[in-house]
Amino acid sequence: MPIRAPRICGCGKAVPPGGRCPCRATADAERKARFDKTRPSARARGYDSDWKSARIDFLKAHPLCRCGAPATVVDHIKPHKGDNAIFWDRTNWQALCRHHHNSTKQRLERRATQGA
């Protein structure tokens, strides 16, 4: 079976197939740090003690993710973007396992914002 050749990063370094150049990893970390400095706290975004209680009640009523794993995250199907009406609309909530929330759901949201 043929082996793919390394690719050349914009910085000029050879990167093995499936790998990431250290310069890209550093740039990504810096970009994320800049974003986190401007992002409001979780409490400022509405995730307070009221949310914690509602989340626990919702997970008791919906204990499983769609994959059958135990649900640990209450996800907003339609992103609320600070809108309290959408934030508290329980028909907009879904129970997900951490894997599906942090990978699948986030990937779908990135695609939606890039296409808009």
Rank of each mutant, 00 (worst) to 15 (best):
M1V: 12
P2A: 11
I3R: 12
I3G: 08
A5I: 08
R7T: 13
I8V: 15
C9F: 04
C11A: 07
C11P: 08
A14L: 08
A14V: 01
A14E: 11
P16E: 00
P17V: 01
P17E: 01
G18N: 05
G18S: 04
G19C: 09
G19F: 03
R20K: 13
C21N: 07
C21S: 05
A25V: 14
T26N: 01
A27R: 14
A29I: 02
A29K: 09
E30F: 03
E30S: 02
E30Y: 02
E30W: 03
R31Y: 12
R31A: 10
R34Y: 04
R34F: 05
F35K: 07
D36P: 02
D36F: 09
D36C: 05
T38I: 03
R39T: 13
P40Q: 12
A42E: 06
A42Y: 07
R43L: 15
R45Y: 05
G46E: 01
Y47Q: 13
D48S: 11
D48T: 10
D48R: 14
D50K: 08
W51T: 00
K52F: 10
I56A: 15
D57C: 02
F58P: 00
L59C: 00
K60Y: 08
K60P: 04
A61W: 11
A61T: 10
A61Q: 15
H62W: 13
H62E: 13
R66M: 08
R66S: 10
R66L: 11
G68R: 13
A69R: 12
P70S: 08
A71N: 03
V73F: 10
V73I: 15
V73S: 01
V74A: 05
H76L: 12
I77E: 07
P79C: 05
K81V: 14
K81F: 15
G82D: 07
D83Q: 08
N84E: 11
N84H: 02
N84V: 05
A85K: 12
A85H: 10
W88A: 00
W88V: 03
D89H: 01
D89S: 03
D89Q: 02
W93R: 06
W93V: 09
W93N: 03
Q94L: 05
A95V: 09
L96N: 02
C97M: 10
C97Q: 02
C97E: 02
H99Q: 05
H99T: 07
H99Y: 11
N102G: 15
N102F: 04
N102Y: 07
N102T: 06
S103G: 05
T104Y: 09
T104N: 06
T104S: 09
T104V: 06
K105I: 03
K105C: 03
K105F: 03
K105W: 01
Q106D: 10
Q106P: 06
E109R: 13
E109A: 09
R110M: 11
R110P: 06
R110K: 14
R110T: 11
R111F: 09
A112F: 05
T113C: 07
Q114C: 04
Q114N: 11
A116C: 03
A116W: 08
